[in-house]
Design a protein around this nucleic acid. Structure first.
Length: 490
RNA sequence: CGGGGUGUGGCGCAGUUGGCAGCGCGCGUCGUUCGGGACGACGAGGUCGGAAGUUCGAGUCUUCUCACCCCGACCA
């Protein structure tokens, strides 16, 4: 087969870049740092959205939409928040253009905005400013809102899906009467993300708390799900924040509780972005291309006819139509590619590159034997199956693939999660093979920063379901109640 | 923002001391092919990133400029 991708071994990040382009997921646009998500890539994102949206609704949330523009003054209301985002904000300063003497077009300096508008890097401020008017009583709580939106963070260096200046995401913003309830919501949504990653993306994740260093600007506590990529680097795939009363205080959002006492509300916010696309790509794919979990694949089964003459194709078309209908009846998404403009071998390679979980090939031999050749994308294994009961066969195989790639990803993570009991050992693992390293840490910012500077590894999270184990910090030797996850990160 | 690099058909690239702008892929037409990215013939497609300069003559030399990529510092 003609090689179209750089191999992972050769250059992992080049492999990733090649794959995104060659699998037709996205490409760089004329705007620096901003990508064009192509139809095939967007189809995957839409499937993710549909599932997540259902999960949010099932946990009591409603969708709403808030403006793209945020008055500059809003951003500065919460001190940590502004500090965290100020360096990467795009700002709108004018509202009109005029033709320039040189023949082009230029900003009309007379059309300067009274108050400049920031393009949302996240929507806490505009949302809490709005919530102020929505909440008066404990009867208005909890307020459980989600929005699907684009946001802009002016990044220095960007990579398709993993870090782009503009990206798509959802952001949940909830308001609660009590601290406990807001915290419960924070953890619940982290759980939703972890379930989604596992059940739909077939990607195992670690749930944990972020250290102070990695905390969201304006949050009291940040939780995340962390996944391990095939190059041994961790990818933060979703975050859920307990915001305490920080934004309620900044925007003066209060309510009267049952006893008639005026209180600030408690808040959470949580989000996942198109970065999940990057995670999905890197979690399962190989040197032949994308490997998609059947549950998120836009096309679950592709059927390729093999024929010499058009008369043969007519017979195959007929047989395929029967198969196609039975698959659709079983809720399987099928594409029959009977284009005459490409050869079977070309199509095989193409759909492999695009990660279609199953490929059915039907030729004269199969017509004769009432059989189909079925090729699995995950194992590249080919087998002949009878046409009879093909829908059940396919269904079973899709389930097997979904489970199989999860298992494979889990094994990979297990085989690349290490325990280090000395700093020496720690440095050796991080430098040589990467992966997650579980080690004791004394809980201080200084130690974390020292480790980061010396090894490039960061604390990904403090696991939520930790095995409590007394130990000593690998750097300072001070006591530590449990191990935390370290890794180099995206 | 520091360090490095690249701009030449749609994509990937070559272009020697300055002398007719090329190759591969892709694209179009026709024919033979079709169970793992087929082959042949013919064909279309370029203000060589932009501006100024040197020269009889610039893709090539000089100056300026713009864009993008890679490596760092910052980030989901």
């Amino acid at each position: 087969m003609a090689k179209v991708l750089t191999s992972r071994k050769e250059n992992y990040s080049q492999w990733y870049n090649d794959l995104v382009i060659k699998a037709d997921l996205a490409e760089n646009s004329a705007v620096r740092g901003c990508m064009v998500i192509k139809p095939y890539g967007y189809a995957i994102w839409e499937k993710m959205q549909a599932v997540l949206d259902r999960m949010f609704k099932d946990t009591g949330h409603s969708n709403a939409y808030f403006p793209l523009f945020i008055p500059k003054s809003f951003l500065s209301r919460e001190a940590d928040h502004v500090e965290g985002f100020a360096k990467e904000c795009a700002v709108v300063t004018h509202y009109r253009l005029k033709s320039s003497p040189s023949g082009g077009i230029e900003v009309d300096e007379t059309a300067k905005l009274e108050e400049e508008l920031v393009i949302r890097p996240t929507s806490e401020t505009i949302i809490w400013n709005t919530y102020k008017n929505w909440i008066q009583s404990y009867r208005d709580l909890p307020l459980l809102i989600n929005q699907w939106a684009n946001v802009v963070r002016w990044e220095m260096r960007t990579r398709l899906f993993l870090r782009t200046a503009e990206f798509l995401w959802q952001e949940g913003h909830t308001a609660h009467a009590t601290r406990e309830e807001a915290m419960e919501e924070t953890i619940k949504m982290l759980g939703v993300y972890a379930d989604f990653a596992k059940e739909w993306m077939a990607m195992p994740v670690i749930k944990g708390v972020k250290t102070e260093n990695e905390r969201f600007a304006g949050a009291v506590e940040t939780y995340s799900i962390e996944a391990l990529m095939q190059d041994g680097k961790a990818l933060q795939s979703g975050t859920s924040h307990f915001l305490g009363q920080n934004f309620a205080k900044a925007f003066d959002v209060t309510f009267l509780d049952k006893t008639g006492k005026l209180e600030h509300v408690w808040a959470s916010s949580w989000g996942v972005s198109t970065r999940l696309m990057g995670a999905l790509i890197m979690a399962h794919s190989d040197d032949n291309g994308l490997v998609l979990p059947p549950k998120l694949a836009p096309i679950q089964v592709v059927i390729v006819p093999i024929y010499k003459k058009t008369e043969e194709l007519a017979v195959i078309d007929e047989r395929v139509e029967v198969i196609r209908k039975s698959l659709i009846a079983s809720g399987i998404s099928v594409k029959y590619d009977n284009r005459d403009t490409h050869k079977p071998g070309w199509k095989f390679a193409e759909y492999e590159l695009k990660g279609v979980p199953l490929r059915l090939a039907i030729g004269p031999r199969d017509i004769e034997n009432r059989s189909v050749e079925v090729a699995r994308r995950d194992t590249l294994e080919k087998k002949i199956y009878p046409v009879e009961g093909i829908a059940d066969t396919v269904k079973a195989l899709l389930d097997e693939i979904q489970d199989g790639i999860y298992k494979k990803a889990l094994d990979f993570r297990d085989n690349n999660t290490f325990r280090a009991d000395s700093y020496e050992e720690f440095r050796e693992i991080i430098a040589s093979r990467g992966g997650f390293v579980l080690a004791h840490w004394d809980g201080t910012r200084e130690t974390e920063e020292k480790i980061n500077q010396e090894t490039k590894a960061t604390i990904r999270c403090i696991p939520l379901d930790p095995v409590m184990e007394e130990g000593k910090c690998i750097v300072t030797g001070k006591p530590s109640p449990r191990r935390v996850y370290f890794a180099k990160a995206y």
